[in-house]
Every structure is written in structure tokens, then in C-alpha cells.
Design a protein around this nucleic acid. Structure first.
Lengths: 230, 230
DNA sequence: GACCTTATTCATCATGGTGGAATTCGCACC
DNA sequence: GGTGCGAATTCCACCATGATGAATAAGGTC
């Protein structure tokens, strides 16, 4: 009797794409349960594969995670697309695009998983940081131009990050359950404000009509951390 | 004077505060290396204590983490203090206070560690979410009053969250190395804009003539688990 | 001093990731 | 059609981790 129960050792006959099989399972599990909750063993079992094969293909758990969640959409494209339109409506477009991506059942969970891990793992954090700096801050700054473009772009970016953090990472109410329109209505003007050239003293009263002042941006003030220049 | 090496079993003579000793080591290690990187064994060793003692005192690793990083400053007090002053300068005060707390070598790392873990662990996330809703959103909303107070408070909160995320969690440049003054200068106006009543600043180019509807705000969105809630 | 409580260690378990050795197959080359 | 090499796949042994239960020693109370 041939008890076929245990695959005998060695390469399988035919040409099954075990590699992709593993990746599929891993992707689903990572999205569903998060990095830490998922064990390589469970993935191996579910994929009908020995544990060691995962290491063989992807090196480590982190490697597998990276491979499984490799971004399908290129953020650079999205940024470029958003920047293309009328600068006057940029805030709306940007927010709309971010909300669409994050609420999309396809891409949303991937983004969530990636950012979650970036916050907890330094190597992923560095990756995300560089991506944000290069693909978003720099491009937006270039598109903006004018005084302190890079910092205005950074502030813009911070606002989007705040939206993501409160709505998707922490799910704070009422942010988590507001509609796209509501969010854009509430955040849009602030984003526009951020993108606009810095007026004089933003501090006091309302829209204090701007007086110009533009030089202090040129020289970098103190150096707090590393070199900012890019 | 020889075999002093292994503490023989049972209670130690004297009345050493081993509990506090463990907590000290844990606190330092958690702040320095992060939750996952730290092992209970290493803490036990460094504290000159058996591993099981930690479980005995604090139940689990999460328990130890919670105990070690228990907040020394009550966020409610800070919020109250910030809300007390002149409403006109509230954005500046709020940003200033947040920056002060997070850049303070005493409290900053604790906040960082807490938020990091909140993002990665659901039970901590729920805790932080509730704290933010109750102690910040609700209070700010109450202090603001007016149309859609709760949502304006939420938007305000999102902006602060964005600052924290980009500057401290991801350390994106140039945000990470901007001075407090610069940040306040760049973000202050936007925060003010967010807090102001949604009059029509139609942000020229708004998706449409901004039109109607602003009464549905009064009622709290249905209980938290609401629609979007997932 | 008897005795209960608390602190402390030891031994062990179940789980999770990693690395090495052994086996089997696909395929290029003669 | 055989030969051989490399890639795919399994099994096994290992080591670190967090958790738990039993054993033991000291403190405190009557």
C-alpha cells in the first residue's frame, strides 16, 4: 500500500508554483491577522508545505512579509496624478485620493498592514520614511515652489498622516465613521491653508492679511537632528 | 564565602524592593529597545532575579509593560490647562504643549513607546482610542461649542496626530528637525482654520458650490460601532 | 514556636523561527 | 538514453521565548 500521506522528500513532480502558493497564503494571513499573530508554521500548513521551504524561498519572516505585501500600486504614480490637476483644487483631490485608497477593500488593508509594521519595525520605518520623503515631500515641494516649499509640503504631508492615523490606525470616533465628503469639508480648508505661502504672523486674530517676510526660511535654523538637506 | 552564586530558593533575607527593581529595569529597557526587542529573560537577568518572578508580580509581559510605562502625567490635566487660556491663541498653545511633552527627554520616550505599541497591539490601541475620544475630542468639542463642534475637535486632533506621526513615529524630514517655532508657524494657521466654524471659505474650487446641510452635525453619530466601524 | 502569607527559585512546556542534511525531481549535456 | 548538476522539498535538531506549577525560604502574627 502506498500511504501517500506524507509527501516523500525531494522535489515534487510536475511544476507546481509552490512559491506563489506560499505567497498567496501569506498575503491573506498577514492582512487578516497582522504580522505578529501569524506564524510561519500556520502559513506552511495552510499552503501544504514544509516550514523550512518558506525560509528557503524568502529567507525570513520579514522577507516573506515584504514579498507578500509588495505594493501593487506605485505611490509615485498616484502622487504625480494628483499633482497634475488644477493646483487650486489640489487639497480636495489629494484627500479624496487618500481616502479612496485606504477605504478600498483591495488596497486599504495592504496599506494598513504596511504602515502598522513600519511603526513597529525600524527597518520598515526607514523604508517608509524614505519613500515619503522622496516620493511625496520632494515632489509636492517641487510642484509647489515658492517660499519654504519643502516645509509647506511637509506640513501638508503631516495633515494627511494625521487623517490616516486617526481614521485607520486608531479608528478614533467620529473620524472613523465620517464620510469622505465630511472629511474633505472639514480638512480641506486647513490643507489649503497649509499649502499657501506663509503670511506674516499667523498667530493672532483671524485671517490677518498678510505682510510679507520671506527670508528666514532660507537659512536652516538650528540643526536638531541629522542633515535635512536632500 | 564561596558558593554564593546561586541564590538558594525562597524569599530573600532583608526586605529588598525587588518589585521596584524589576520595574526600573523594565522601564529602561522598554524605552530603549521597544517592546518586542526586549525579552523577559534579559530583564530578569539584569535585575538579578529569576524569570518566573516577573510573571509572579506582573502576570505577563504586557502587564509588565503597562506597569512600567504607566503615565506619570495625566493627559486630562494638560488638556484642561491648554483649553483654559485665550481661545484665540489655542492652536499655538496646543502645538507648543504637544511639542514640549514629546521632545522632553523625560516624557517623550514614554509617549513614543506607548503610541508605538498602541499601533501594533489591539488592546492597547483600544485603550488609547478611548482616551483620545474621552479626554481630548470630547473636551475640546465642549470647549469649542458651535456647529459640528465634535467634528472640528476631531479634525484638530487629527492635525496633532499628524504632527506626532511624522515627527516622532516616522521622523520624516524636514519635520523631524524643524524647530518648535517653525512648526507652529507652519501648522498654527491650519489648526486655527480647522477649529473655526465652517463658514464658507469655499476654498474656491470646492467640489461644488459648498452648499447645504449643516444640521446633521448636532446629533452624535450613532454609537461608536457605527457604519464605517469595522 | 506554630502557622499562614509572601517572595523567590527550579524545572518544564509549548511554540516559533532558523539552519543543516538528506532526498527527489527537472533539465542540460553528451 | 544515460549522467550529472542544481533547484526544490522534506525531515530533524536546535535555541530562544513566554508561561506555569511545584518546591523552598523568609517575614509576620498570634
Amino acid at each position: 500500500m502506498m500511504m501517500n500521506k506524507a509527501q516523500r522528500r525531494g522535489r515534487r513532480p510536475g511544476s507546481p508554483d509552490t512559491r506563489a502558493e506560499i505567497l498567496d497564503v501569506a498575503r491573506r494571513r498577514f492582512l487578516q491577522d497582522g504580522y505578529h499573530a501569524v506564524t510561519l508554521r500556520s502559513i506552511a500548513t495552510e499552503a501544504g508545505v514544509d516550514l523550512a521551504l518558506i525560509s528557503y524561498f524568502y529567507g525570513s519572516k520579514k522577507g516573506l512579509f515584504g514579498a507578500a505585501l509588495a505594493l501593487s500600486v506605485n505611490p509615485a504614480d498616484v502622487v504625480a496624478e494628483v499633482l497634475e490637476g488644477d493646483p487650486a483644487t489640489l487639497p480636495q483631490r489629494a484627500l479624496q485620493r487618500v481616502l479612496a485608497a485606504w477605504d478600498d477593500p483591495e488596497s486599504g488593508p495592504v496599506l494598513l498592514a504596511l504602515v502598522r509594521n513600519a511603526v513597529q519595525d525600524d527597518t520598515f520605518a526607514a523604508l517608509l520614511r524614505e519613500l515619503v520623503e522622496r516620493e511625496i515631500v520632494d515632489r509636492v515641494a517641487a510642484s509647489l515652489g515658492g517660499t519654504a516649499a519643502r516645509r509647506r509640503a511637509m506640513a501638508f504631508c503631516a495633515q494627511v498622516a494625521g487623517l490616516i492615523t486617526t481614521r485607520y490606525l486608531l479608528r478614533v470616533e467620529p473620524m472613523a465613521s465620517m464620510s469622505h465628503e465630511e472629511i474633505i469639508r472639514h480638512l480641506g480648508p486647513a490643507v489649503r491653508q497649509t499649502l499657501s505661502e506663509p503670511g506674516r504672523r499667523p498667530a493672532q486674530g483671524g485671517p490677518a492679511p498678510t505682510a510679507r517676510r520671506r527670508q528666514e526660511q532660507a537659512a536652516r535654523p538650528p540643526r536638531t537632528g541629522g542633515p535635512t538637506g536632500r
